[in-house]
Design a protein around this nucleic acid. Structure first.
Lengths: 211, 211, 211, 211
DNA sequence: CATGAATGAGTGTTCATTCAT
DNA sequence: CATGAATGAACACTCATTCAT
């Protein structure tokens, strides 16, 4: 994906290279947040980063790589946090709730960026040109597989309903979770984090009907 | 929006005109389904419709009008069906379930088109250029307002939980509903309609936890 | 140039045809005055005339014919008036001054249209596509030839300077005359007709130096 | 107007850039002379210059800038020469005659280009879209204001007629001058420069009547 | 490492013109 | 006679990408 500097490059150069990549990705992210996912041009990104468009091609193969790098960055960061939080919980239900807490926090801290991550994690290729970066997607797939396990445990413990397979529950849980976060990321005056967690968990856990 | 033929046109011409508009919108829809929402070109649509690009400009002011017409068409059609189904039910909960049934049916019958309607109904303008057709969006807004009333009644009847305002319930209900339908519209071998309804209603009504 | 109706057409039809042509030419003129010579489209003209663009092609071969007809109309009208005025004067100098008077009057009465006539009478083909209608131009040529005779007589009578050939004097007289009228046609608050005549004649007859 | 290369560009690049701009302007001029002011396309210019159409957009914002640059170039060049010649003369009449000499020479040396300059200096906006480059026009305005002063001096010295205001004389002098030069620029076998000066000055100074 | 310059392929859109009805 | 519909050819302009310097 992202171009690597020459093999014989010193460690110093490697570091410099990585730093530049980070700068460029950040610039691209800023532009994408400002202009929307689909109307970003290489000129825009270069202008934001303060370099010439041609420079981008030293660090990335093509436009796709630049855009993908954004999703990859946030995906990685988010999943690291989520896994850390899950590791601190023992039982399955608590793990799911921890996931929710971290994602709410992340979505609130990186409002617009979250939409990008969401697009990466949930977007389906509609046409040929619109597909999603492979590696970020793979990371999500792996994470979801782990969640299925968590859910299976919670079912075994009697915490989750048993009339759906863990795969189905995982699928719907993640769809609903991401959708609701997305929705919240667009609200002008969203409630506090704890309240957000309460509302979302309320619906996910208990549905809309009176218990 | 869509260009109207001259007032003095005969009824015959009017009909011909409308028919052509439908043909062109269908072509545009086909292309959009194939290539994705954002990479549609007027040349593509014309090629799909079997006419010259210039012909499109007889029936639409510009590209926006063409794209908007698609969302408008399906939105209108879907809401007509939903309202009809709701009118046949008496109590609030049954109305919501009727909505679900119609939407599941529509989403399955117009799989890819549903994604377009969904984009119209839920999409938020991220950048300046990407906004959503005004009137289709208005139709959704109006429909959602009606739903809030339905939900209020169901709450009064003790069918829906009372610890959230009807507005919040409506918001989350519609987000979850549309997201799940969207998810299903991407599955390769989706279950039967009745089963889809059962699953979705299961999660929306009761959540993921053991009752 | 302008299309003729079928040979077997009755006189009635002929008249109707001519009347329509006049209407269309007038519409074209109005548009040209409003939008400038070069940005006139057939759609514009048709809209102004209240007919469909295709209708224009019943009365004119192509766009050129429409535009030419405007110049031709005013050229003919102007030259008729000029010749009438000249015929009422006996000596050469008086004939020239009569020409000036008529042209000033015409230019003031048809301010913007005059620029079109001027373009026809004086414009030189700069490129291949910009040439000038042949017949209107021929009418001007014929008129200028007559003027040369008038000038020759005035020279013989000692009224005009003899150190230039009549052809040269005619050429410069007409260039200057038309340029000054053109200039006046752009002034916001032009002086009265008589004053205009006085000024222009003052410069043309006596030059800028103290007599 | 013309795009400037980045500030940090070296002097070398700056020079290269300017040279290219000159080449492109020259190409545009050639095309304009060949095809006329209004039917120039970017493709034509690019073809004449031997580059791709997109290249033009590196050096100019849009078509207007290219066309304007031509008028600006010649206007500047001509006015420099005129002012230099005027500075060498002491009295007002001699200054005007010097202006005439320089303009005759320039018009003969840059026949077709002169028509462009003329269009810039005298053209009036007929429609909204056809207006004239602002800065070239301003340069003419400034020059004309200076001429008014020159004429006022010549009037005070008794060299020019006093029955018209200097503004009126300037206006008519410049209109007539430019018109006659324009006329000469179209003649197939124009007389020598000195003869042209003699003829034009003859008419401007003394008019067509016998002194 | 960085970039100014260059460009092919494409974008939405317009327009004079034709023709079946 | 009139016109709605249709279109080929063109236009100004953009963009991701390459490459010599």
């Amino acid at each position: 994906m992202v171009k690597k500097p020459n093999a014989r490059s010193s460690d110093f150069h490697q570091r410099r290279h990585d730093a530049t990549v980070q700068t460029l990705v950040a610039a691209a992210e800023a532009v994408m947040v400002r202009q929307g996912y689909h109307s970003v041009t290489m000129r825009d990104i270069a202008a934001e980063a303060g370099c010439a468009p041609a420079t981008l091609y030293i660090y990335f193969e093509n436009k796709r790589e630049v855009v993908d790098a954004i999703g990859a960055r946030h995906t990685r960061e988010l999943l690291v946090q989520v896994r850390a939080a899950m590791a601190m919980e023992a039982d399955g239900l608590a793990k799911l709730k921890a996931t929710l807490r971290v994602m709410v926090a992340y979505a609130n801290g990186n409002r617009s960026a979250f939409r990008i991550v969401r697009a990466v994690g949930r977007a389906r290729p509609v046409g040929l040109r619109d597909s999603v970066p492979a590696d970020a997607r793979d990371e999500w797939q792996a994470f979801w597989a782990e969640e299925v396990e968590t859910i299976r445990q919670a079912q075994a413990a009697g915490a989750l309903r048993g009339d759906f397979t863990p795969e189905v529950i995982q699928q719907f849980w993640s769809v609903i979770l991401v959708s609701l976060l997305d929705e919240l990321s667009y609200q002008d005056n969203p409630p506090e984090l704890a309240e957000q967690v309460r509302i979302i968990w309320g619906f996910i856990a208990g549905g809309i009907c009176r218990g």
